[in-house]
Each structure stands twice: as structure tokens, then as C-alpha cells.
Amino acid sequence: MKKQIIAVAGLALALTACGKEGGGTTASAPAAKPGEKPAVCLVMKSLANEFFQQMQKGAEEHAAKRGDLTLQVTGIQNETDIDNQVAAVEKCVTQGAKAVVIAPADSRALIAPLKRAVDAGVKVVNIDVQLEEAAMKSAGIADKVPFVGPDNRDGAKQSGMVLAKELGKDAEVIILEGNPGAANAAQRKAGFEDAIKEGGLKLVDSKTAHWETDEAHTVFGNLLSAHPTIKGVLAANDNMALGALKAIEEQGKKGQIKVAAFDNIPAIQQYVKDGSVVSTLDQFGAQQASYGIDFAMKMIGGENFSGWQKTEIKLITKDNVG
């Protein structure tokens, strides 16, 4: 299957937390009744993340427009609640879903329950955060689970290069990382490091804030106190950028420290407009889910897909925000 470049339009999602992880072998999903619409389960990440709230809205609108499936939306309370995301996958299978479209909170921890889903005859489509390829191969499902998502490293580099041009060589910067176990967190950090190297910036520290605004506010506030001469921060998502902006304002450094970010959620756009955030990166989350649903339905219909189905990204700056 050759790669596809998929044009997309932005948004994201919200979710409902499910029970706890089940043990043992996953039972086969119940057979569909004649004429019954197949159930597709969309499993997302944090309820508090505006990106996923937009994703949910877009997915529901897309499912309603298609009219040939029943969409079940679920997720977790925060970005590190991996156990409940595992449980959500198990629940989708036991409730008879024919496909699971998942944005995994961790690139390795979700492989075991997804293998159980595949073994039960459920189709699986990976979106947003890529599952670890080596672990997928080891589990025997690499050729059964396509990844529908963006080039996170390239997107982070694009965003970071805007900051590098804004600050100039030798400016001190900090990276706020996403979840350590998530592939997109590692890819975005690598993209930021590419921009730092190419732009001649000086990286003085790099810490995770697990994608969360409140944690980023605390983490970056401490980093700013420890490194008072920094000029920029590269945040791996807009939620963490918002936390950093709050810390910057509290320490009286508004306008002195610039931010590069990733996601282009509505809440960040006012800061792009006023120049506090020099760049963010739209990865069109709503359409990722919509295309994931489309692939899932094709797979339910008997088609096979694997590998990376690449989706569009777009650099957002003051010149094109909104």
C-alpha cells in the first residue's frame, strides 16, 4: 500500500473515562446482525485537552455525514491515565465494536490490548501518536494496523525555526516535552532539536510536562527561575505553551520570552496574534479522526492497509493565524 498524503482541516476531541483493564484473553466481538450499522470506537486521550475536544466534534460530524456506522467515543481524564485507556479498548471489544480508531497515550503500553482486539477480529487504526513499530512487529500486528497521522518531527522543526529566526543565534531556550512514552513527544523534541541546531540556538534545559497546562506552568516556572536569561521556549503542544505563558507573565517577563508551540488550538491563537507565541503547527486533528474512521470502514469491508498514511500539516504564524 503506497503512502497517501491526506488533506485535512483542523479540530480535536473530548472523551469519557472507562473502567479498569481486564485480564486474560479478549473474547471475540459479537457478530453484527443483518442490516446493523457497524460500531466504530474512537479512543482518545485527555478530556481536558482542547485538541481532543475538537477531534471529537469533527469525528462525530463526519460519522453523522457518512450515516453508515455507529460512532462510540471514549477517552481518559488526563494524558498519563494509560490504564483507563487500556480498559477503554477492552470495553470497545466486549461491547461489539467492529473497529477501534485510537490515539494512544503511550506508544508501547497500548500494543497488548490492541493485539487482543485484532485477535478478536476487530479492525484497528492508529491515529495521532504512532505505535512503536518494533513492538508492533514483535506482537505480529504491524501489517494489520495502519498509522494515519502527521510528520511530527518536521512540524516541530518548522515551528522551532520560526523561533530561531526571531531570537537569533546563541539565544538560550528550553524545551517542554510531552509524555516520555509517546512517539509524537519524542518526534517533536527531535524536531525542536533540529531547529535549535540549524538555527544556532543554545538549549539550556529540557523537561516533560506530560502535555498538561498546569504541570507546564509549574515546571516552566521553576526552569525560568533557574535560567533567568532564557529568551525562548519550545513547547511540544499548545496546552503546555499556555502554562509557560502564564509563568512568563507571573515573573514579569511578558514580551521578553517568545514561545514556539504545536497544535493550533483556539486558545493559543490570541497569543499568536499578539506575538507572544511566534508559531504553532496545525496537524488537523479532527480530520485525522475522520480519515481514521474512513480507513476503519474500508477495513471492515475487507480492504487491508498498513504503514504510514501521511496527513497534512500547516505552519501557523501571525501572518496566517485564524
Rank of each mutant, 00 (worst) to 15 (best):
M136Q: 13
L131R: 03
E172C: 11
D151L: 15
L176E: 09
N184V: 14
P150A: 11
A120I: 00
L114R: 00
E133Y: 09
A120G: 02
F147L: 05
M161I: 07
A171I: 02
R153Q: 13
P146H: 07
K115R: 08
K115L: 01
A164Q: 05
A182S: 15
K165N: 11
N126C: 04
Q158V: 08
A171C: 04
A185D: 13
A186E: 07
G168D: 06
L163S: 04
I127A: 03
N184T: 11
K137R: 08
N179M: 13
D143M: 09
P150V: 02
A135K: 14
I141K: 03
L163N: 07
P180C: 07
A142N: 07
I174N: 03
N152F: 15
I127F: 01
I127Q: 01
G140H: 08
E177L: 02
K157W: 11
S159A: 14
G140L: 04
D154S: 13
V145K: 03
V124S: 00
V118Y: 00
I141M: 05
D170F: 06
V124W: 01
D170K: 14
N126W: 03
K144A: 09
N126K: 02
K144H: 12
L167H: 09
K137G: 13
N184Y: 09
M136G: 04
G168Y: 04
L167N: 12
P113D: 04
F147W: 10
A182K: 09
I174T: 03
V125F: 02
Q130L: 05
D128N: 11
A117R: 00
L114M: 02
F147A: 06
A117C: 03
S138P: 09
D170T: 07
D128F: 10
E166V: 15
S159T: 14
E172T: 11
K165C: 06
A185L: 09
K157I: 04
K165I: 01
P146N: 06
V162G: 05
M161F: 13
P150I: 01
G181E: 07
F147I: 10
N126R: 03
A182R: 06
M161S: 11
K169R: 12
E172M: 11
V148A: 06
D143L: 12
V118L: 00
P113N: 03
D128V: 15
A135H: 10
K157D: 14
V145P: 04
S138F: 12
K137Q: 08
A135T: 10
K157L: 07
V124G: 00
D170Q: 10
G155L: 12
E177P: 09
A139E: 06
A134G: 06
P146C: 08
P180T: 11
D170Y: 10
K157G: 07
S159Y: 12
D143K: 10
E133A: 14
A186D: 15
R116V: 01
R116Q: 11
N126F: 04
I141D: 02
P180M: 05
P113Q: 03
E172N: 12
V173M: 03
D151R: 14
M136Y: 02
K115G: 02
F147R: 09
D151G: 11
N184H: 12
